[in-house]
Each structure stands twice: as structure tokens, then as C-alpha cells.
Amino acid sequence: MKLLVCIKQILDPEIPVRDFSIDREKLEADSANANQVTNIFCENALETALQLRDSVGESSITVICFGRESAEDSLRKALAMKADEACLVMNDLNHTPDSATTAHVLASAIESLGSFDLIFTGRESGDWGNGQTGAYLAEELKVPYLPFVDDIKQTDKGFEVRRQTESGWERYGIPASSVVTITNSDHNLPRIPKTRDIMMSHRKTITRVSFEDLKIRKDELNPQSDSVRPVKLFVPEKESACEFIEGENLNAKIDQLADKIMEIRSTL
């Protein structure tokens, strides 16, 4: 069985407020003072794929990333987690393309890599948080699509998956070659790689794919050609006007807290 996991490298979502700033020209976060990390949902996706491989055996996992040079770190980490192959689709554009373009590039790259029994993406990324790449990818590849998946089993017909819904979950049967987006659950926290695997990951080759390789014309990719582009990006002002409840003792403080809660409740 061949599994493909699409991962994305993003600005560390835990970046302290002080280190977060905006590149006004590119209209994206300035990466000078920030770490780049693998998007957590992509790690959940990889973990889900690894668990599927663990349960069925005899499978290979390819990890693909459309990103900058630095994304090699994310791919190496995926290899350390025991993905079999890694492919970096080099983004040497001056801007970060939107979800539709990203999916288009990924789809071309995936077609060049061959066919896969299941394609994984994270449900959304911790930077722009669009949550659309998986859907666009399925449309590009013209394959079935199911988002918010947190559990996958192999069946005779394809796969049985669990999808999270607003109020619970649903189980679906999906055919092979579908695209699923993975969401977090208590059993797909990314595994910790073994040290030897980390060391080995540095000896593995990462396949590099350029726009030329995919016959995509770079000059046609620019913010104006994207379907969505940022026109403004700013750090919102937050005013703090919290009233800290003070009191002689804890009991008095809790009394006041109860009063305030009842006050709001009475307006309902």
C-alpha cells in the first residue's frame, strides 16, 4: 500500500507576541525572529499514516512538502518518524501562494510521483488557517474527499474512517485513492523519533522537485493570479479592562463572583 502525506512548514504558532511582526511588503509574518515548525495537523496526519502502516504492514509512506528551503527540516523530521520517502517541491516564488495554487502544485507533483492508496493532509495550518488545501487537492486529482478524520482502518473495499463532527463523530467507508484531512485526537499525537532514526534521517535523500520539473510556469504564479490574496495584515489592538475581584478573604471574593455571574444570568 502506498500512502502519501502532505505536510507544511509554518511559523511556530507558539511564537511570543514580542517576536511576532509583520512584513508589510509581503503581507505575511516576518520570519526573522521565529522558528519554523511542522504544522501540528500535518504531524497528526503523518502519525495517522504511520499507525495505519503499523497496522497493515507492507506499506510505504511518502511525505511531500511544498515550501521553502527550510522545509527540509520538516521533511527530515518526518523521515526520522520513519516515513519512507520525502519530496520537497521547491517554492522559490516571492510570495506564499494561496490554497488553490498550492493544491494545484501539489497535485502536479503527486501525479509525477505515481498513484497512492490514500492521501493525507492536515485539516488546516496554524498560520493562515484556511483549511482548504485538502479539498482543492481532491478536486484537482478528481478523487473522493473527506475532512476532519481522526482514525483510519483498512477494509476490503478501501478504508473505514472516523470523522469528527460538531456534536460527535461519524464513520464512513471511503474508496482507495481518496484525500482525507486529519484532525487532532487523543491518539494521533505525533510520535517521538528515536535518536538513531534522527541520525539516519540525515543520511536519506530528499527528492527535490522544481516548478520546471512539473512544467508549471513560474511567471504565471503571482499574487494577482491567486484566487485569494491578502490586502491588509495587521496586529489587532487589544484593550485590557479586566476587573480583578478583590476582597477581604476568599469567601468575600467568591461572593462577588457569584453576584456578577447572577447579574449576567438575569439579563438572559
Binding site: 514580542r18 517576536d19 522558528n35
Partner: peptide, 18 residues
């Protein structure tokens, strides 16, 4: 956290210069 951010305090909201 040490691996990706160089410090063990996962979830810290401070930067090294705060």
C-alpha cells in the same frame, strides 16, 4: 520544545528579550 524553540518551556508566552 527545546528541539524546535531552543527552550523547554512549552507554551511560554515570553520572548528572550521581554
Amino acid at each position: 520544545s527545546i528541539e524546535s524553540r531552543g527552550h523547554p518551556f512549552s507554551g511560554s508566552r515570553f520572548s528572550r528579550l521581554d
